[in-house]
Amino acid sequence: MIRHVITAFVLLNAIVLIVTYLTYVERKFAARMQSRIGPYRVGRPHGWLQPIADALKLLIKEDIVPALADRPVYNLAPIVFLIPSFLIFATVPFAPGLGLADLNIGLLFFLAVSSLEIVGLFMGGWGSNNKYALLSAMRAVNQIISYEVPFVLTALIPVLLAGSLKLSLIVEAQRGLWFVAYPVIGQLAFVMFLLATIASENRVPFDILEAESELVAGFRVEYSGMKFALIQLAEYTHMFGVSCLGALLFLGGWLGPGLPGPVWFLLKALFIFLLVTWVRWSFVRIRVDQILGLSWKVLLPATLALLMATGFWVALRSGHVA
């Protein structure tokens, strides 16, 4: 019991620290793409104290609640949004035996909890009593529900290949060959997984919830100070969580030569995070009807077909098909 509490405490703080510095990595990476320098002044070298300064600034900012907001809903939303983002790390194995709980249904738990974020998001959009936020919440429900389906279906492909829902077993099954390296199936599944990830993360080109050029900042337009910081933290934590999932499902988790397991794991998660960031800073946003069309008309049939193809292949390999 005590051991679990201590592990959870350490894990929580480690994740907050990693996520804080992911924002820094993203800003430097984006700056490089845009021929800028990025954060530079706060802390030498290269503004490494910037994330800390950002967090401190948000802490001391005034907390503003709109006069006509639905106060309980408005105040609760950032917390409801934040909790599932951290909960998903409960089942993530960073290395063999290094994780909070390696459940038998680890992947299922991960997917179920991670789709809970929509509740907090909608509460924020509704409780703000703002038309931009309301439109954004409406879009959020549309988009996230549409993309959860292909997201789950692509995550099932490694499950089929490994024959288990337990995340550590999925990684062990990749000891010979990472799933991303499986001919055709692996690459297609990885690309679809990335697409669905970007969409369920609300990143450009699918960031219609935030859409700052139309909806200003979407569902969080009325949030300021620490509540805004919580929403940001939740978003980046969720993003990091899904990057970790990608590393576990397709890139062989902690497997790798030379370096210790957790290092490999974090490097792979960082790689997926940077892929998503790369896409983010090179595309423009697409429209809500186009996003939904892409999900239901293209991504869903494609993932279904791929899932079936994988199923056949697995059955053939194990000799169950006469």
Binding site: A30, S35, R36, P205, D207, S213, R280, F283, V284, R285
Partner: peptide, 17 residues
């Protein structure tokens, strides 16, 4: 492009270029 892609996306990249 900033209008279409947003200050936090590819639009900003084109804008800065």
């Amino acid at each position: 492009c900033l209008d279409m892609g947003g200050a936090l996306g590819g639009g900003a990249t084109v804008f800065l270029y």
